[in-house]
């Protein structure tokens, strides 16, 4: 595994330059471009916030930053899973010519999405601090160890999606539907309290993504430290998907070329 990582590192100029190109293409070389891709979660959040404010009487200052934080977090995961479907097919011309480690193709997808996540998180962090102030400044520090873990999680999703899609061409649809359902099963547009009040707390207990979003969102908004149980669940989830991704690479990396 160490020699595999070294091999991935050996190709760093290759995937590094592709990631830079992907980012440049997405932003079209301007900060306005970054603004456009932030606009999507912002506009969605604004619309939803308005509805929830009217329906449930949520306070805008409290609810809106929470919603946006959740939305950009989810955008990262769904990009990794959905764009990840095409990571191997997009790299087909390369992997037919050079036996580079396959892990670099999902990595390309993930790093481009992570760059965007970084910008979005910075905007949320500053925006929230300006509106609400930071209640618990120390907890913000807890965000930073989560970032590499999030990267690992996104990468493992991209690996799994990429291989699944290489073997089954209709996987794309299934993953899109799956992500949509998970989105509503995860407390992003609603708060965990709403579910618990209505006796649906079990949904949070069986969905490890609920813990993951919590351990990222609380520190991001500076609203206190997440509880250890959430960390344990989130860590377990990341461990499982990463192990699955490594196992998949180990088993199928050399064979997947016959499926493309």
């Amino acid at each position: 595994m160490l020699s595999y990582s070294a091999n991935v590192w050996r190709f760093r100029y290759f995937w590094g330059s592709l990631v830079r190109m992907d980012i440049r293409t997405r932003y079209r070389g301007s900060w306005l471009g970054a603004g456009w891709s932030l606009l999507h979660p912002l506009a969605m959040s604004a619309a939803m916030c308005l509805v929830f404010h009217k329906l449930f009487g949520m306070s805008v200052e409290d609810y809106l930053p929470r919603l946006i934080a959740g939305m950009v977090f989810w955008q990262f995961l769904s990009t990794c899973a959905i764009a990840g479907c095409n990571c191997l097919t997009n790299g087909e011309a390369y992997l037919r010519q050079v036996p580079a480690p396959m892990a670099i193709y999902p990595l390309r997808t993930t790093l481009a999405a992570a760059f965007h996540l970084g910008i979005a998180f910075a905007v949320v962090l500053v925006g929230n601090a300006m509106i609400n102030g930071v209640k618990d400044p120390a907890s913000v520090l807890a965000l930073f160890p989560m970032l590499p873990l999030l990267l690992l999680f996104g990468w493992s999703l991209a690996v799994l999606a990429g291989f699944a899609h290489a073997y089954f061409p209709d996987m794309h649809h299934l993953i899109e539907i799956g992500m949509q359902m998970l989105f509503y099963a995860t407390p992003i547009i609603y708060t965990p309290e709403i579910l618990r009040d209505r006796g649906m707390g079990w949904l949070l207990d069986i969905n490890p993504l609920a813990s993951l979003v919590e351990v990222v969102r609380l520190p991001l908004l500076g609203r206190g430290m997440p509880d250890p149980a959430s960390y344990l669940t989130a860590g377990g989830l990341i461990l499982i998907t990463t192990s699955l991704a490594v196992l998949t690479l180990n088993r199928l990396e050399r064979k997947v070329i016959f499926q493309l």
Binding site: Y13, A93, Y94, Q97
Partner: peptide
């Protein structure tokens, strides 16, 4: 092999020289 495959259509010629060069 396949000399014309594996170009990134959005990249310039110079960019593609880099991608292919790094891959090699």
């Amino acid at each position: 092999f396949d000399l014309t495959l594996g170009f990134e259509p959005h990249g310039t010629g110079r960019d593609n020289i880099r991608y292919r060069g790094y891959l090699l």
